[in-house]
Amino acid sequence: MTADSDTAVAAAPRPRLLPFAWDRVALPGFILLMGLVFGSLNPNFFSWTNLTNVARQSSVLALLSIGQTFAIVSGGIDLSVGSLLAVVSVLGSMQLVAFGLVPGVVGGILAATLAGAVSGLLIARTRIPPFIVTLGMLSLARGTAFTVTGGMPVVGLPTEIQWIGAGSLGPLPVPGVIAAVAFVGAHWLLRRTSFGRYVYAMGGNEAAAIAAGINVRWHKFFVYCLSGFCAGVAGIVITSRTLSGQPTVGETLELYAIAAVVIGGTRLGGGDGSLIRTLFGVIVIAVLGNGLNLINVSSYIQLIVIGAIIIVAVGFDLWRRERRA
């Protein structure tokens, strides 16, 4: 049960040791604390340049994590999103070079959506678990990216594409705006549409969802299409930031996307979770990486810190649930 589902909050008795909703303030509080620490150690942390940097750098992870949230809430997982970035980067770049801006962007996003559709079809129509299907897709997609390029980067992209990764809308960085719009849209989709309710339902209890007459196959298929689409948009952002097609890009990013979702407090089993939580999870990872870079902490230590935070965050979440139960 979660504090995000209104009925659960109403039904759960207020535990004495937790006078208010800790889970709603724990992560924002932690982010604030990190900000204060990094800001006092390096005053440039709060500079506008740096804050927009954080937005730019985290936009790719944010987009992947949005798709991942749907996959996880539906009771599945999508391991392929990091490799899909490479597919978009490579195929999108080739189309950008050959046909120009709009066909390149649309083609790149379509390629990833199509790959997501293939995963979705297999997950919906067969008994192969999502973990295995998307693990296969991870390797398949990476291999495709290497095969079509022979391992070399794609170059000669039209420079207008740079606007997506480096441009600004007023004071706001474009990739940050894209991620923000995606968050709002996805939140609406998960919370305000019947599709969103079905995603929760099939993640919580698939048999019950089927018994209730929900077309689980169709909605599962759509979940992975959506995850592929998000990876497609993320791939366009990264292509723009690198102004080239890179078959090696995005390696292990799928794990960070999963980490962002679980740090936010979404349960891996499905049926529970929200995009607001994922947003906080993304901010934690992004601010941590950026802040530790700014105070010159080695990237090896960063890996250790992120690992510890994943375990502590999930541990805290479980402890809180038990208290409440």
Partner: peptide, 21 residues
């Protein structure tokens, strides 16, 4: 340290963070 030639996105972020500092 980018940690490998495949981590272009990481090296880009590292350069941006150096610019910000």
């Amino acid at each position: 340290d980018a940690g490998g030639y495949q981590y272009l996105d990481k090296q880009i972020a590292q350069i941006e963070d150096l610019i910000a500092s």
